[in-house]
C-alpha cells in the first residue's frame, strides 16, 4: 500500500481534487494507494508522522523532506499532466 500526502493551503479545495486524481491514477494502474490531505502548515508534521511515499502539493512547502515532492498543479490545469503522472507512477510502482 502506497501512501501519498497531498498538501494545499487550506486542505479544502485543490488538494481534494488532486487527491482523488491520484487515487484514480493508482486504481487505473492496479496499485493500492491511499491519500491523506494536509494543510500546508501541518504538512511537515504529517509527513514526519505518516512517512508517506511522496508528497504532492499545490503550495510551496518549507522544511526537511526526504521523499519525492511533486508539484500537483498539473492535475488542476492539465498542463504537462503526462510528466506529472509519470513522476507519480514511478513512485507508485516502486
Amino acid at each position: 500500500m502506497k501512501l501519498i500526502l497531498v498538501a494545499c493551503g487550506t486542505a479544502l479545495a485543490t488538494s481534494t481534487v488532486v487527491a482523488r486524481k491520484i487515487e484514480q491514477i493508482a486504481q487505473e494502474n492496479g496499485i493500492e494507494c491511499k491519500t491523506v490531505q494536509a494543510k500546508a502548515v501541518d504538512a511537515i508534521k504529517k509527513y514526519e508522522e505518516l512517512h508517506p511515499d511522496a508528497i504532492v502539493c499545490t503550495c510551496q512547502l518549507e522544511g526537511e523532506i526526504n521523499v519525492p515532492l511533486i508539484n500537483g498543479r498539473a492535475f488542476l490545469t492539465g498542463i504537462n499532466i503526462k510528466s506529472t503522472t509519470d513522476q507519480l507512477l514511478e513512485i507508485l510502482k516502486k
Binding site: 494545499c8 493551503g9 487550506t10 479544502l12 479545495a13 485543490t14 500546508a40 503550495c59 510551496q60 498543479r73 488542476l76 490545469t77 492539465g78 498542463i79
Partner: peptide
C-alpha cells in the same frame, strides 16, 4: 490573506484564479 500566503493563480490558456479560505 490566504491569497498572499498561498496564491491561487493558474496559468491555464485563459488565466484563472481559485481564491478560497477556511470553512
Amino acid at each position: 490573506e490566504r491569497e498572499r500566503v498561498f496564491p491561487t493563480g493558474l496559468p491555464t490558456k485563459i488565466g484563472v484564479a481559485l481564491p478560497h479560505t477556511e470553512a
